[in-house]
Write a protein that binds this DNA or RNA. Structure first.
Length: 513
DNA sequence: CTGGGGATGGGGCCC
DNA sequence: TGGGCCCCATCCCCA
């Protein structure tokens, strides 16, 4: 019996040893395969980066060709294949960008946009704007981007003249907000260099944070960019008082820090946080196809093309509209129209702003050449259309609208209104429904929504006793009884009670595409 | 199956 | 702040 027990003990120990060896072998195999797999992933990522660079190069060439074709004498394009050595005071790491000081709020001939890519091996491109009359050339938007080596999502930065301490190591500090940078220098219209910061905080909805960097608006500018105090954060610059390389420019300095990671161009949808959200931004949040401002400066990825005179802007939509989201179609149409008629400024819905923009026109004669830049935040052509149909950016109110949206420059009469409006761009939705996952930008919208849950329908049709939760729906419904069909199809004359019906009808029956 | 049309709900803005 | 208004997208029903 004792022998039997000992035998069993030996058997058990042998089985254990064998099983351990087996497990160890499996682990080894898994580790080996994992290493191979990781190696393959790394190689694939490298290939992706290489292809991406090639794609960018092609895009740049296309853009350059277009610019040269339209303005052979006014644009000088340089290719820079070497990384300029930077001094101690500059950012290190081989992937910084430098913004030349803006001396007099105007773009001078000798001012370069230098975009240095990290490896120093990929071609660099500088478009040097030559203006026959730089002082009158109007505002110029310069935008810089930096693409890092490890992860482009974390790699955008600006040359601020401060030590690189501000850079965050996102790989070692994942809790840190991901911060990417770009800069828009706006000179002319606001006499200001704008700096805003997109700071992907975990708090709330990745609200764009903005801060003003220690400069007051130029004396000539009576308009203020509203800085939402609720979303203001401390900038990561170690020395906030240290100005950006703007020299003694009395203008106001902002920088826009963008996360380029999860998007081609723009921000992630803010409703990523609430994945179930059926959000209208879902189709438009990546849409960069909104030219909020008139003008002749086109940002083409890493290239800034300034188009002078009344010549139409040319831009490379392919690099940004790969998915052709619905909201970007206007831009594609816009580009198409430009390509087919290179000398006519197409009456794009975006250009509608141009003619109805009291802000722009009130900026003084120096703004005769306005801006065209992509609102890289939640830019929606719907907004542009809204603005256009409401008569422009400041849409004709009698009140003075001194408080400008930092994203689209639309004017509002109070900072609170700007704050609410800016939620359009930031995606902030502070009001959440207690009955469902829906979130809203305004309290009134939430209240209205909650009737869905309560079933409250205070508006009843006097003709049919049908009840509605909203008055505008009742009003719409009453067209059924009145037979009112104010929207007529221009092609076939068919009339509809709602504009959206007409639109659908035209899309289905008279669409040219 | 398709298009028209009604209903519904969210977004945004003005007052 | 809330009401009103308009826009838009979507769902559903019906001819």
């Amino acid at each position: 019996m004792a022998n039997c027990m000992g035998f069993h003990t030996q058997i058990a120990s042998i089985v254990e040893v064998l099983s351990n060896a087996f497990v160890a072998e499996i682990c080894k195999l898994v580790d080996d395969d994992y290493a191979v797999f990781r190696l393959e992933i790394t190689q694939s990522q490298k290939e992706n980066r290489t292809l991406r660079r090639k794609l960018q190069l092609l895009e740049l060439k296309v853009a350059r060709d277009r610019v040269l074709a339209s303005h052979p004498s006014s644009v000088k394009i340089l290719d820079q294949y070497s990384v300029t050595a930077r001094g101690e005071g500059h950012l290190t790491g081989g992937n910084r960008s430098v913004v030349k000081p803006v001396g007099h709020n105007t773009w001078r001939d000798d001012q370069l946009i230098t975009v240095n890519e990290g490896s120093g091996t990929s071609p660099q491109h500088i478009i040097m704007i030559e203006s026959a009359d730089a002082e009158s050339a109007g505002p110029v938007v310069k935008q810089e981007r930096r693409r890092g080596e490890e992860d482009p999502r974390h790699s955008r930065d600006i040359e601020t003249g401060v030590p690189p301490v501000a850079m965050e190591d996102h790989t070692t500090a994942p809790a840190q907000p991901r911060t990417c940078h770009s800069i828009m220098e706006v000179s002319g219209m606001l006499n200001a260099v704008l700096k805003s910061e997109t700071d992907r905080e975990t708090v709330k909805q990745r609200i764009l944070h903005t801060e003003r960097l220690g400069c007051s608006p130029a004396p000539g500018s009576e308009y203020l960019l509203h800085d939402n105090p609720s979303s203001r954060t401390v900038h990561s610059h170690p020395n906030p008082s240290q100005p950006i390389e703007t020299g003694n420019d009395p203008s106001c300095s902002y920088a826009t820090e963008m996360d380029t990671g999860n998007m081609l161009f723009g921000l992630e949808t803010p409703t990523d946080l609430s994945k179930g959200d059926r959000n209208q931004y879902s189709g438009s949040v990546y849409s960069e196809g909104c030219l909020d401002k008139k003008g002749e400066v086109i940002v083409v990825d890493e290239v800034i093309v300034k188009v002078e005179g009344d010549a139409p802007p040319t831009w490379n939509a392919d690099s940004h509209l790969g998915d052709e989201h619905s909201q970007g179609r206007d831009f594609l149409n816009y580009r198409d129209s430009l390509e087919t008629n290179a000398n006519v400024v197409t009456p794009s819905p975006l250009h509608a702003l141009k003619d109805h923009d009291p802000v722009s026109t009130s900026m003084g004669p120096s703004d005769s050449h306005g801006h065209v830049f992509f609102d890289q935040v939640l830019n929606s052509n719907d907004m542009a259309r809204d603005q256009a149909r409401r008569g422009g950016v400041t849409s004709g109110g009698s009140k003075e609208k001194r408080f400008l949206c930092m994203f689209c420059n639309k004017g509002f009469s109070s900072p609170q209104k700007v704050e609410i409006h800016q939620r359009v761009h930031t995606g902030e939705k502070p009001y959440s429904c207690t009955h469902c996952h829906m979130r809203f930008t305004e309290a009134g919208t939430l209240k209205r929504h909650q009737r869905v849950h309560t079933g409250e329908k205070p508006y009843n049709c006097p003709q049919c006793e049908k009840r509605f939760s909203r008055q505008d729906h009742l009003k719409m419904h009453q067209k059924v009884h009145t037979g009112e069909r104010p929207f007529a199809c221009t092609q076939c004359g068919k009339r509809f009670s709602e504009r959206s019906y007409l639109k659908i009808h035209q899309q289905k029956n008279h669409s040219t595409r």
